[in-house]
Simulated scan of single mutants.
Amino acid sequence: MEADEPVRELDEQECWDRVAAAPFGRLALSVFDDIDIVPVNAVLSRGDL
């Protein structure tokens, strides 16, 4: 990823690799002018989340 490229699309394998490597994730929701960020746990098993 380039330093001047703040966002880039991940391919499917990169997404799975990141989920597998992280102990937990975050789900961000925006409703009206309120933003909630919630921690989530994930378990991978044979390619399923």
Rank of each mutant, 00 (worst) to 15 (best):
G25P: 02
F24R: 13
V38P: 06
P39I: 00
A20H: 02
P6N: 04
N41P: 00
A21V: 04
R8A: 10
I35R: 14
A22R: 01
V40W: 05
V40K: 03
S45Y: 11
V43S: 06
C15N: 09
R8C: 05
L49H: 04
C15T: 11
F32N: 15
S30C: 10
M1C: 12
F24D: 13
D48L: 09
R46H: 09
E2T: 15
C15H: 07
L29K: 13
N41D: 12
R8G: 01
L44Y: 02
L44I: 11
L10K: 01
P39D: 00
A28E: 08
E2G: 12
E9Q: 15
I37F: 06
R26E: 09
E5K: 09
E9A: 14
G47I: 00
E12F: 06
F24N: 12
S30P: 02
P39M: 02
V43H: 07
M1Y: 13
R18H: 12
W16E: 03
W16A: 03
L10S: 07
D17V: 01
V19S: 03
V38M: 05
D17M: 06
V38K: 05
E9V: 09
R46P: 03
V40I: 05
P23A: 03
Q13H: 12
W16T: 01
D17E: 11
V7C: 08
F32K: 15
E12M: 09
V31G: 06
A42I: 08
D33F: 03
L29M: 15
F32A: 15
A22S: 10
R26K: 08
S30L: 12
L44W: 05
A42G: 07
S30H: 07
E2R: 15
L44S: 08
G25Y: 01
R8S: 08
E2S: 15
A22Y: 03
D36V: 11
E5D: 14
D11C: 05
R18F: 12
V43L: 06
V38G: 01
E14N: 04
G25N: 00
V31W: 09
E14R: 02
D17W: 00
V7K: 14
E2C: 12
F32S: 15
D4V: 10
A22M: 06
V19L: 10
V40H: 02
V19N: 03
D17H: 02
D11R: 05
S30V: 13
V40Y: 07
